[in-house]
Design a protein around this nucleic acid. Structure first.
Lengths: 146, 146
DNA sequence: TGCGATTCTATCGCTCACGATATAAATCGC
DNA sequence: GCGATTTATATCGTGAGCGATAGAATCGCA
């Protein structure tokens, strides 16, 4: 009648994401980062300074989630937030030297995670692409601006 | 240097799980259920009455998450919580008639989700098993008792 | 040019998740 | 049996995530 969670794709996805968080936690804890903060730091380090909207498009998050998260990271001294001079509605984000140094340290974390998965690089890439495609079918990315 | 989130397996997993939640939300909203509540209801309906610990083993959640969640569901009239007579440390959970009726209605939800994914049943099962295996490698399930 | 619509970010309230810790019951060791 | 340890659940504080909504800046069109 009712399907058990263990038989559902959605629960496998849900619980695998939780297990991934748990696997990342000990890798990020020495850096003082949470997982979403690690994503923000990586996005800014890899893709350069950007607005809250652009970061949100990259991470699929809205300002109601990002604003408090970014404020905490600003307080920690990792990034700066400043209204764009040309368009005061936007807030431009930039890494501080401290933030860049932390991002450099955090760059080694994905390797450590890959080892924990027990998958080889081809399997990693295949699964990543399958999941990204599923995500985009479920929730198309909104286009990003300026 | 730093990998962008879009290139990471972890972000694909993270964002796919978020997209899955977003896809479930409109299916569950008419039932008044959140996604974790839906999992609890499904687990109790499929696997019968059980203790908090057993439910936690099935859903990979601890009492610090489950207790408030279960209390909200008890308040909503979907389940009962009662100390086990034989072992008063344990709390036994049971669906009410109202909870069983809601679970029956919710049983149609996975079909609707599968349609949204655009995957066929074989692909669904394959991906589910890959993710469950990854989850169990990252975080072995703790054994469950009584 | 001016004003209504749109865009961008922020705020609020709620649920979920988890680490650390507390509390009570049951079990173990002697 | 009695104290120490273990087990099961609950509590507290914090961070995330999101729907609804607010507020300011900009845009578009009459």
């Amino acid at each position: 009648m009712t399907l058990a969670p263990s038989d559902m794709l959605c629960f496998a996805l849900h619980s695998a994401a939780h297990a991934m968080h748990a696997a990342y936690a000990p890798l990020l804890e020495p850096l003082g980062l949470t997982y979403p903060q690690y994503l923000v730091l990586s996005a800014l380090a890899a893709q350069g300074d950007q607005t809250v909207g652009q970061l949100g498009a990259a991470l699929r998050l809205e300002s109601n989630t990002l604003t408090p998260l970014l404020k905490r990271m600003e307080t920690a001294g990792w990034l700066t937030r400043a209204r764009d001079r040309a368009d005061e509605r936007q807030v431009r984000l930039g890494l501080t030297d401290q933030g860049r140094a932390l991002a450099a340290r955090a760059a080694t974390v994905p390797r450590a995670f890959v080892e924990k998965t027990g998958l080889d690089l081809t399997e990693i890439a295949d699964l990543r692409d399958i999941l990204a495609a599923l995500r985009d079918r479920l929730k198309p990315a909104r286009e990003q601006r300026s």
